[in-house]
């Protein structure tokens, strides 16, 4: 149906393919150079340390797909972690109920973002910058800046430490949410509307789509999953602190943009986001296992540095590639075959 193109050309045109290649290269490199990289324990370790950011990236993706952004997810993670501690330790609510309550609070906080953005048509950037400060501030106020909640029930802590079939629990959770978001974005009318809104909010409105409601949905979803990530974080560290998840919003956005989702909206896949998360996770963990770097104890800084640099190159590269492609398309448009009616 579409124009024939060489196999490799179409393959390389997709950012997912590039990422997959980068991921494989990372795995090969670190297996060769890193110490104990290629072990089940290390694999589990990577999963544990990247599940929370991965979850945030998964819900950041639909938001960016609609052309929005949410800077508050990291702060919300901190607030939800602290609230979970308050629910279990000060209100003495049973853990499952406390967890459910935390998820509700997360969704409500996301609803606050969504409500301000769609109700008053405020720019998402500045609204979520405000709630970024507000949520973190509330977490600090509740804990008076220093208090941490410890001694959670063993059953709950298992979420952060146990494995099933070799994969840590939070890994299964990540897969479940990834599948759910992927279905939502690629298999339902919700995803269709996110895409339409990202390309053209006005066009979506003229098609009778519920634009404001769909946008609000993405922020509520982000709040809900941020709360989920807070539970995972608390279980992993065995404690709830006000500074939980600081800076996670940046890493989540990085993973999404690296994963090929256009910051201008409309274009992107959940699979790409998963690959983006994996690339960043393997890079940051793998570096720590290279003896020379481990010796200096600079693995995490180097990992973050490379992530930031990677994001700049991904952004600039995307734009430059696009303008090159546009130039080539202009040259080829003269020789373009004319479409024929389908009969």
């Amino acid at each position: 149906m579409s124009q024939p193109a060489p196999f490799f050309k179409t393959l390389l045109a997709r950012p997912e393919a590039v990422l997959l290649f980068v991921l494989v290269a990372e795995l090969v490199f670190f297996s060769a150079v890193g110490r104990n990289f290629n072990t089940a324990d290390n694999f589990a370790n990577i999963v544990r340390h990247s599940a929370e950011i991965g979850l945030l990236a998964l819900v950041m993706m639909p938001i960016i797909l609609t052309g929005g952004i949410d800077l508050s997810v990291g702060s919300l993670l901190g607030l939800c972690a602290v609230l979970f501690g308050v629910f279990t330790h000060e209100w003495h609510i049973a853990t499952p109920l406390a967890a459910a309550l935390t998820l509700v609070v997360g969704a409500a906080a996301g609803g606050l973002n969504g409500g301000l953005i769609t109700g008053l048509r405020l720019p998402p950037l500045i609204v979520t910058l405000g709630t970024f400060s507000l949520f973190r501030g509330l977490a600090e106020a509740i804990t008076k800046g220093t208090m941490t909640y410890k001694d959670f029930s063993p059953a709950f802590l298992a979420l952060g430490h146990e494995r099933a079939l070799g994969l840590p629990y939070q890994g299964w959770l990540f897969i479940a949410i990834a599948v759910a978001i992927s279905v939502l974005v690629h298999r339902t009318t919700f995803g269709r509307s996110f895409q339409a809104i990202g390309f053209s909010p006005e066009g979506a409105r003229y098609a009778g789509l519920p634009v404001q409601r769909r946008i609000a949905t993405t922020y509520v979803l982000a709040g809900f999953v941020a709360a989920l990530a807070a539970l995972v974080f608390t279980a992993r560290l065995r404690q709830a602190r006000a500074d939980a998840g600081s800076g996670y919003e940046l890493q989540a956005i990085t993973a999404v943009v690296l994963g090929g989702t256009s910051i201008f909206g409309g274009v992107g896949t959940v699979g790409g986001t998963v690959l983006g998360v994996a690339c960043v996770a393997v890079l940051t963990t793998g570096l720590k296992l290279i003896p020379a770097i481990a010796l200096q104890g600079i693995g995490s800084e180097l990992g973050s540095l490379l992530t930031g640099a990677l994001l700049i190159f991904a952004l600039a590269g995307g734009v430059l590639a696009k303008s090159l492609a546009a130039r080539r398309a202009r040259r080829q448009s003269l020789a373009k075959p004319q479409p024929q009616p389908i009969t």
Partner: peptide
């Protein structure tokens, strides 16, 4: 601007 979302496939536009 309003009638068709140019970046989206014809089928998606028709069923929107």
């Amino acid at each position: 601007r309003h009638g068709v979302i140019l970046e989206m496939p014809i089928a998606a536009n028709m069923t929107m």
